[in-house]
Design a protein around this nucleic acid. Structure first.
Lengths: 351, 351
DNA sequence: GTTAGCACTCTATTTGTTTGAGTGCTAACA
DNA sequence: TGTTAGCACTCAAACAAATAGAGTGCTAAC
């Protein structure tokens, strides 16, 4: 039994086969490789080598009289050892990202679209995940006779508005007092730290207006939870339909379905793609490639998924991903993501 | 030449054909109708009638030796004259709509999903369109040494936050003064009414802080424009793939594409579906049915689109739509939309 | 006006045939 | 011993012909 290590000729042949298949999408035969490469070997020799490569699990034959196509293992080897990382120019990246995006959401949506347009695959991007948001600052203001507005600033300078029902109009002086009480006791706390003890203190200090406090705390809770909720934006989902190997069976349908239900997708991505902090993932700038069955998301088992982690500030990460057929242009996708990461880094540092 | 008016037997036959076709999706033949109805006519007679109906343009024959299917004109007659409007129960509607939805967006998203799940077609819903938003109230607050927060209340009690760059920290008293100036001069104005004249006045009264005023006004402009922007939420787009008559050619692909690009879709819906205020549309509770080519949106020409207009408050409308194959279950869809409209009305009145 | 009957049309399905790409194996070669 | 030419073999895809079945239109009789 041969060792699992491939000699350089086998490597060259495998490389040629995969490159050819990525381009054409057709099973590639011995004759093609014989001409296509400068190894100057006859098709017969290639055939022997191909048979070996198949036995070793790097290639697969769709049927007896067809050429070979790469197996997942083959792709894996290609991605790990053979891929040439060229730096990818990304069309319009500069213009798109330089537009002022007041809200991070809008920036993320743009990024997703940019990726989809540039690669012709589907893309997705999550909002960044904070460990747990802390309250930075809260302010109550009169709106009308029966409503107050709570402006809630969370860690990361994110303002949230919550309208609160009130039984009557509050005097400015009362609001001022409440604001001071709330801020002095709640500042820099996250949800877990706001316990009964603290709540009790606030209510005491608030005196007769303690009824309102409950509603204010609810509003804070809501605001924090909302912001903690990871969201996912996708783009180019319909690009998937361009790849016959996916639209043939109902892979494409299932994939589109997953991409459409953002709620579920967010959970999947959060659970499955971000979870493996142990090994290689999670470090900024790193790119992960999931090939076929390696993908932890069921409906993407017939695809490859390439993800990257962006860092918006110390310790606050989000995920970007590109989903395409297994025969995706890995060089390009990885290059594109790397370029994007660099650009995003610059943008976030500036802030 | 016969009159275009159909006698009651022709009506009955056409009705039977359409109903049958809606169910099965297969061209329906004379024999089927002969048995299916209680007209007790032989297939030969039906055949003669069918030939007439075809000549009159209500039916179409895909090919010589096939049964007939309804033409757009046939569907139109069906929708106008034959449809039986049963009141549709909508699954879970109560539960879903009763959940407190603090933001109108969330309610709309839920409605879209509800419709898609209940009908098995695709659904879309726009945010309501205000004529032009007026400013109700603005308040500036210190955030830190180089930023202010502008809380901008628009007509309809919509709070918007804008963070404004500041060169230094402003004294509370200064902010108080600015707030008063801004509110006294800008209250209840829309974008068009905020003209150079007014801007000049504000700057005068603001004195040395007039530099800031420009940025504040920009923020107001942005807030109003953002809120004026119609957005569209969709759901169940992938349901489209369940209908072979659409996924056969690339209708489905084009439709999915349209539904994915919310930006473009919003414009289309706004332009084309809301535009015809002249005739029947736009009145609350009215249902419009666009069959095939009647649809003003290109990528939906092979579909039928059923829309309704909801009213969130006096004069403020939005559109809901259901997109499905031409052989959609019109009775059900119209019924569902009507039920929904009633429910929404209740919700909005409560507010 | 209605209907039975029949010839006719056209699609969809099946079956068989051909073509061509590609393989594996063997035997000869350097 | 590794490489190659040659050949028999396999299989999917493309094409063609045959068949079955659903449905029609028309005619003639009721």
């Amino acid at each position: 039994m041969e060792s699992d290590k491939l000699d350089s000729r086998k490597m060259a042949i495998l490389n040629a086969i995969i490159r050819n298949y990525l381009e054409t999408g057709e099973p590639v035969g011995s004759r093609t490789i014989s001409k296509f490469t400068d190894l100057s070997l006859s098709s017969a020799t290639i055939r022997n080598e191909m048979a070996d490569l198949e036995e070793l699990g790097y290639l697969v034959q769709p049927h007896t009289s067809a050429g070979r196509i790469p197996s997942d293992k083959g792709y894996r080897l290609y991605v790990d050892k053979m891929m040439e990382e060229k730096v990818e120019e990304v069309n319009n990246m500069k213009e798109v990202l330089d537009q002022k995006a007041d809200r991070i959401e809008n920036l993320l949506k743009k990024v997703a679209k940019l990726l989809a347009v540039n690669t012709n695959y589907a893309s997705m991007i999550t909002t960044p995940k904070y460990r747990s948001r802390k309250l930075k600052f809260i302010q109550l203001t009169n709106v009308d006779d029966s409503h107050l507005l709570a402006i809630i600033f969370l860690e990361g300078n994110i303002p949230k508005n919550k309208v609160i029902d009130a039984d009557h109009r509050y005097e400015e002086s009362v609001l001022l007092k409440l604001n001071i009480v709330l801020n002095s006791l709640l500042q820099d706390l996250d949800l877990e730290e706001i316990n009964m003890n603290i709540i009790q203190k606030i209510k005491e200090q608030a005196g007769e207006d303690s009824a309102l406090i409950g509603r204010v705390l609810d509003a804070i809770g809501e605001a924090i939870r909302e912001e903690d909720n990871i969201e996912v934006y996708t783009s180019g989902a319909t690009n998937i339909l361009n790849y016959p190997e996916l639209s043939g069976d109902d892979s494409a349908r299932r994939l589109l379905y997953t991409l459409e239900d953002k709620q579920e997708l967010a959970e999947l991505v959060d659970d499955k793609l971000s979870n493996e902090n142990g090994d290689n993932s999670g470090k900024r700038g790193d790119i992960q490639v999931y090939i076929g069955n390696e993908t932890p998301i069921d409906s993407m088992k017939n695809c490859s998924v390439v993800t990257a982690t962006y860092e918006i500030e110390e310790g606050v990460y989000g995920k970007v991903g590109i989903i395409g057929p297994k025969r995706m242009d890995y060089d390009k996708v990885v290059g594109t993501l790397k370029t994007l990461m660099t650009q995003l880094d610059e943008i976030f540092k500036k802030k």
